[in-house]
């Protein structure tokens, strides 16, 4: 069965990738100036207290031993204690991750909703005025730095025009209990549709900022591929069979064109989690980005490692999902997974 082969192969590969990633980040972090023991002991600690903290954290052992001890704890799902917040790293990440996922997923939805029809229209009317306009704006938006765009829309749309809320995840008037960690869902549970809508409005601007940058790339890849597919003979054949235009696009053109887009989205997913760092801090969203920024700021090695590993896990998972989607889409990929050659 292709799905078992594919998943087991990719999971094994993913574990190796993550261990390598952990090693890289761990050893680099030991080279970073700053003493975690001093941070852990607090600002006014005596030399004895610092030494105690060092022993307590295992920092007196050789680096290689420290790494294996870390890996051993990792196997039990223990990412250690955050040195700055004195709470388990897993807990902090568990709090932060849903916010980031919500942001990134919302961006991807926005990207697809805009890029898919836009690319289809541009490709069908290739060389026309609409195509030119769309291509120009894609080049333009891809060149805008995220943080600048974020500040700009925050200033104009949130500040001057006051169409959308400036920042935060939800308005203060709603008290939201944490159930899933996803603000859209939690707000709806706690405060009904009205609070859910409020959370949606808060999410709209940051996710749109993220979507603009990555969506341009997606649009261009889709447009190129749709043009390529339109020239293929089976499209002419489908037309000669009497398939009307809309059915042609939905059944023949798009399914054959979205392959590269799925791959790109998989790669972008990891990059978007990275870019979310900036967007989250500008829009004051309590996500992975804020968590990572904090960790770096306070030389919190465990928190930093945890955040990077989780990001790595997201990237590995995203690429697995990409491969699964491609296999579902294309019978030839499934055949190759089954060792059927061709």
């Amino acid at each position: 069965m292709w799905i078992v082969r594919l998943v087991s192969r990719r999971v094994a590969l993913g574990v190796i990738t993550l261990i390598a990633l952990a090693a890289a980040v761990f050893f680099i972090s030991t080279l970073v100036p700053g003493d975690p023991a001093r941070v852990a002991a607090g600002e006014n600690a005596t030399a004895d207290q610092i030494a105690a903290a060092r022993e307590n954290l295992g920092l007196d052992k050789p680096v290689i031993i420290q790494f294996f001890l870390y890996l051993g704890r990792l196997l039990h799902g223990d990412l250690g204690m955050s040195i700055s917040t004195h709470s388990p790293v897993t807990e902090g990440l568990f709090d932060a991750l849903p916010t980031t996922f919500e942001l990134v997923l919302m961006s991807i939805i926005l990207m697809l909703v805009v890029a898919l029809p836009a690319a289809t229209i541009a490709a069908l009317r290739r060389g026309g005025a609409g195509d030119q306009a769309l291509r120009t704006s894609a080049v333009f938006t891809a060149g805008i730095p995220t943080f600048w765009l974020a500040l700009l829309v925050q200033f104009f749309i949130g500040g001057k025009l006051q169409i959308l809320p400036l920042s935060g995840a939800v308005s203060r008037q709603y008290s939201v209990d944490r159930v899933t960690g996803f603000m859209l869902i939690d707000a709806t549970i706690s405060g009904g549709a009205e609070a859910g809508w409020d959370a949606f409005l808060h999410l709209l601007m940051p996710s749109a900022v993220l979507a603009v940058l990555f969506g341009a790339q997606l649009f261009r890849a889709l447009r190129t591929e749709i043009i390529r597919v339109l020239a293929r003979e089976h499209i002419a054949v489908a037309r000669s069979k009497g398939v009307p235009p809309l059915t042609l696009v939905m059944h023949h053109v798009l399914p054959n064109s979205i392959g590269p887009a799925i791959t790109i989205l998989g790669v972008q997913f990891g990059m978007m989690v990275g870019s979310a760092v900036l967007v989250e801090s500008i829009f004051a969203l309590p996500g992975l980005g804020s968590y990572l920024t904090n960790a770096v700021g306070s030389a919190d090695v465990n928190a930093l490692l945890g955040a990077v590993l989780v990001t790595g896990l997201v990237v590995v998972t995203a690429s697995l999902v990409v491969d699964l989607l491609q296999a579902v889409r294309d019978p030839r990929v499934r055949a190759a997974q089954n060792g059927g050659g061709r």
């Binding site: 003979e233 002419a236 054949v237 069979k241 399914p255 054959n256």
Partner: peptide, 16 residues
């Protein structure tokens, strides 16, 4: 009126 094309592999949608 219907048509048959040159390359029978290219004439078929690989995903259907």
């Amino acid at each position: 009126v219907a048509m048959v094309f040159q390359d029978p592999l290219g004439a078929l949608n690989p995903l259907q």
